[in-house]
Structures are given as structure tokens and as C-alpha cells.
């Protein structure tokens, strides 16, 4: 097993880091509802980062590394679907951003306000819907991603991709949940580690208290576990690995977020402290595709077959 980046992977991630650095992205001020970065999306598209999995010599794992790095930013961009899911189902991959949803077409979905395509798991079919201008109404939320809802889904032309495509769609979605969660968790943890090193109470940094150290160590363990399970799932692209990775991520997020906010005290509960830029999104991912119990059932199905 080789856990080091290949030369190509290191070069891509280095290039991505440079690109991000050139945009000078700061945590948005007072961005309660959504912090979507169109300039970042434009640069990623121009740089070919979002169709990496279609390029010669690159695969899903390389795409996962990109998605993970982008998730570390304090702003959101529609990358996980474009990189990890859409290439399987879109004839024209330039018709992005791509939104995904499971259930009724009237449900809100992440990135729908700017999406050009929607992939919808309606239970017995996977639909591809091209989104015309004006077809979406925005939905205000606290989950940092832009959410929207189709105004009149029955009027939109759709392509049936067939129920046989659903396992792949769901598998890739689970990989995306784990990988994106990993990036969000890394940034959130780093922010809190800095805070507990500098915030003093009782005459010493609060990070020197054992009770806090122990729980932050456990948070770091959760973050590492989510990371490696997600990357493994991207590497194998297997049903079982994907379901296990998503189950673990969605189980870990509540414990992780609770501890991180706890150790930032009241300051961490305000919009003046940037932690929410990552934890809002983690909360959204925690509930995707039915939540951890649904992923655990999928993992059991992958092991024993559907009963």
C-alpha cells in the first residue's frame, strides 16, 4: 500500500493551492445563508480541475483529493458532484454546476440556484434535468450552501437514465459526502486548535487542560478516520467502502462539531468567529442521502445482499 501522493497528485494539489492563494479567499463576513464563490468556480473550470477524472491518467482518487482540498476553504463551490458524480451521467460535462437530490423533485437541493443540471434519484429511476433560467427559487437556510427548489418540475424536460444507474449514483454520492466532510473537518479542527492554544483561562491556555486535550485528540482521530475511509472509497469505488465511509462520516460529524464549538465557548457560537463556515456545511452533509442510518443499511446490503 502506498499512502504518499504520486508526483502527478502532488503537482495538481500544489497547483490548486497556488490558484486558491491567488484568489485571496477570506472567510466571508456575516455570511449566514450562503458563501458560494463564483470566482473560484470560474478559475477551477478554466484550470481543468473539475474534469480531472476524464483526463488521461487520472481517476476518482485524484478527483477526491481535489474535492477534499476545496472543502477546506471557508467558501463553498460545487466541486464534489462535478468531479466525483457527474462525469458518469452527463453527456455534456460543461453543463455544470450540477445539483443532486434524492426524493421528490420539489425538495430543495444544494447548489440548485446556480445549477445547469440536476441529477435526481426519485427511488425507481435516475433523472437528468437541464435547468433553464428562472426555473429555481432560492431557499434561505443556515447551512452555508446555496439551496434552491424547482418551481415547476413537471414542466421541465427530463432524461430517464434508468434504475440500473442508481447504485452508481448513490455510491458516488456517498464517496463525495465522506471526502467533502474530511476537508471541512480538517479546516474546522485547525481553527479550533489555534484557538485553544491562544485563549487563556485560569492563567493558562485552555488547550493545556487535559479534558480539552483528550476530546480534541478524539476529534482529530475522527477526522483522520473520515479522511482515510473516504480516500479508500474513492480509490476502490466499491459499494461497501463507499457506504462504510459515508456511515462513519455522518456518525462522526455530530460528536466532532459539538466538541469543536464547545471549546470555542460563546465566541464560537457567533458569526464573528469563523467556525460556522465549516460546521454549517458539515451539518448539511450529515443529513444527506438519508443520514448515517441509511448509509449503514447500504453497507449491510453491500455485505449480505439486500433482504
Amino acid at each position: 500500500m502506498d499512502y504518499d501522493f504520486t508526483e502527478d497528485q502532488a503537482a495538481i494539489l500544489g497547483g490548486l493551492e497556488q490558484l486558491i492563494g491567488s484568489l485571496n479567499i477570506e472567510p466571508p463576513k456575516d455570511a449566514v445563508f450562503s458563501a458560494y464563490s463564483q470566482p473560484l468556480d470560474d478559475e477551477l473550470t478554466a484550470g481543468g480541475y473539475l474534469d480531472i477524472t476524464s483526463q488521461e491518467g487520472f481517476g476518482l482518487l485524484d478527483g477526491a483529493l481535489i474535492v477534499e482540498q476545496l472543502a477546506q476553504l471557508p467558501v463553498s463551490v460545487e466541486a464534489a458532484t462535478s468531479v466525483l458524480i457527474a462525469p458518469v451521467f452527463l453527456e455534456d460535462t460543461t453543463r455544470r454546476p450540477v445539483a443532486i437530490l434524492a426524493g421528490a423533485l420539489t425538495k430543495p437541493a444544494r447548489f440548485l440556484p446556480m445549477a445547469k443540471t440536476l441529477l435526481a434519484d426519485i427511488g425507481d429511476d435516475l433523472l437528468r434535468i437541464e435547468i433553464p433560467e428562472g426555473a429555481v427559487e432560492e431557499v434561505a437556510t443556515l447551512f452555508a450552501y446555496p439551496y434552491g427548489r424547482l418551481k415547476n418540475p413537471e414542466n421541465l424536460p427530463r432524461v430517464s437514465l434508468g434504475s440500473a444507474q442508481l447504485p452508481t449514483f448513490r455510491r458516488r454520492w456517498r464517496i463525495a459526502i465522506a471526502v467533502e466532510s474530511s476537508g471541512l473537518m480538517q479546516s474546522a479542527l485547525n481553527l479550533v486548535l489555534e484557538h485553544v492554544k491562544t485563549r487563556q483561562q485560569f492563567g493558562r491556555p485552555i488547550g493545556s487542560f487535559q479534558a480539552i486535550q483528550h476530546r480534541l485528540v478524539m476529534a482529530a482521530e475522527l477526522g483522520q478516520a473520515v479522511r482515510w475511509l473516504g480516500l479508500r472509497a474513492a480509490w476502490s469505488d466499491s459499494e461497501s467502502d463507499a457506504a462504510i465511509a459515508a456511515t462513519f462520516a455522518q456518525d462522526a460529524i455530530p460528536r466532532f462539531c459539538t466538541d469543536l464549538h464547545q471549546f470555542c465557548g460563546a465566541m464560537g457560537l457567533t458569526l464573528e468567529f469563523p467556525l460556522h463556515h465549516w460546521t454549517y456545511r458539515l451539518r448539511a452533509l450529515l443529513g444527506e442521502l438519508g443520514g448515517s442510518s441509511a448509509q449503514a443499511i447500504a453497507a449491510a446490503d453491500a455485505t449480505w445482499g439486500q433482504k
Binding site: L101, G103, K107, P108, A109, V139, A140, T141, L142, F143, Y147, T258, H261, Q262, G265, A266, G268, L269, H276, Y280, R283, A284, L286, G287, E288, G290, G291
Partner: peptide, 26 residues
């Protein structure tokens, strides 16, 4: 479900969730 109107509404269950973090601090 994360996309339910009860959850997404600005002062819905999502609000309760983030507000509840303060319970172990205040």
C-alpha cells in the same frame, strides 16, 4: 431530513440545532 421545510426554514429545526450548541456553554 436535511432538505425539509421544517429544517431549512430560517427559524426552523436547523436554527434549533445551532442554537442548542449554547446549552453546554451558557
Amino acid at each position: 431530513g436535511i432538505a425539509a421545510p421544517e429544517v431549512l426554514a430560517v427559524h426552523g429545526l436547523g436554527y434549533d440545532y445551532f442554537d442548542a450548541y449554547s446549552e453546554t456553554i451558557a
